[in-house]
């Protein structure tokens, strides 16, 4: 079982709910270790005193800030705590915003907030349901490990509050300062723009993250397995180079055509979503996936039972049409 990475409380008006914070995401890619070529010797990092060369223990490492001319001010963690008393123990919701208002450029990492004890479940549940009902996210600041975080707290599908850390506005770079030049956008020609919009329409789909797989990580795993088994590693053919675009309109209309052909070859999602299983045996996540395929509106706010009813109704009407 995962250990919380932070204990504290969430403040919502005068209501305080003690919570534990857990990481909600993880990296699935193959993590490589480093070796010196030709040996089986691992590369290690050592934190040493620059002058003596001696290794320094974790508890003896303090932070220093340069104040110019090679001079440093040493800051102890307690001193950081003292400048923002209480901030490292509470997540204070200062306002609520519609989640769609936040540009994804701000999103960093997401955590679960769970009630610290069963007895806090009632207040926790109330906050969760109120957020779900309004579809709004609470904006909150809090301090963790000597760093202030701007966060959005919202109701997740698993009946847990989700906290997503956000970049501050000052963390966003100004492209005019960073890029050599900004693209010059000339107004697109009518029929080209129409055709490009048609292509986008023909490729428009529901967002189903399960449909996307890290095929590169799978290849890396296969490469490792093959090498371990002493099998020959065969280079794969590089994908064909795209044909040179001469006429933008022609390229677009060809793309729309091939898209249409592909659509008519595959059975529609509606037909594929016909439930042949007993819905009462399915988990909330499985029902949610079916609801998505059946275009059930408002599914993110439904309970498991409501989802089951909605899927049953929607699949009956899909079969009838």
């Amino acid at each position: 079982m995962a250990r919380p990475i932070w204990h504290g409380a969430i403040n919502f008006g005068l209501v305080t709910v003690p919570v534990d914070m857990f990481g909600a995401t993880e990296d699935h890619t193959v993590s490589f270790r480093q070796f010196e070529r030709g040996t089986s010797d691992r590369i290690r990092y050592k934190r040493v005193n620059e002058r003596t060369g001696d290794e320094v223990a974790y508890g003896d490492i303090v932070k220093g800030a340069e104040v110019g001319d090679g001079e440093y001010v040493i800051i102890e963690p307690e001193e950081l705590d003292q400048i923002a008393p209480g901030r490292s123990r509470t997540i204070d919701i200062s306002s609520f915003v519609a989640l769609e208002e936040i540009d994804p450029i701000h999103f960093q990492k997401t955590y679960w907030l769970a009630p610290a004890k069963e007895e806090y479940g009632k207040a926790y549940g109330l906050l969760l349901q109120a957020m779900r009902k309004t579809g709004r996210a609470g904006i909150a600041n809090f301090v963790m490990r000597g760093k202030e975080y701007l966060t959005a707290v919202r109701a997740g599908d698993d009946d847990l509050l989700l906290l997503t850390t956000l970049l501050f506005a000052e963390d966003l770079r100004d492209p005019a300062k960073e890029l050599k030049s900004l693209p010059e956008i000339t107004p697109a020609r009518g029929r080209e723009l129409d055709m490009a919009v048609t292509l986008i329409d023909s490729m428009t789909d529901d967002w189903t993250p399960e449909d996307y797989e890290d095929t590169y990580a799978r290849r890396v795993e296969k490469l490792i397995e093959d090498k371990k088994a002493g099998r020959e590693v065969v280079a794969e053919d590089a994908p064909a180079h795209p044909t040179k675009v001469v006429d933008l309109f022609e390229a677009l209309s060809k793309s729309v055509e091939s898209r249409k052909r592909r659509r008519s070859d595959t059975p529609s999602k509606r037909a594929a979503a016909k439930p042949s299983v007993d819905l009462s045996n399915l988990t909330k996540a499985e029902l949610d996936k079916m609801a998505r395929e059946l275009d059930v509106k408002g599914r993110s706010k439904m309970t498991r039972d409501q989802l089951q009813d909605a899927v049953a109704t929607a699949s009956t009407s899909a079969q009838a049409s």
């Binding site: 250990r3 932070w6 204990h7 974790y58 508890g59």
Partner: peptide
């Protein structure tokens, strides 16, 4: 040693 002075170790957080 170090762990005793580590507030995270004391608070038993990951």
């Amino acid at each position: 040693t170090p762990e005793r002075r580590c507030p995270e170790c004391v608070a038993a957080v990951a």
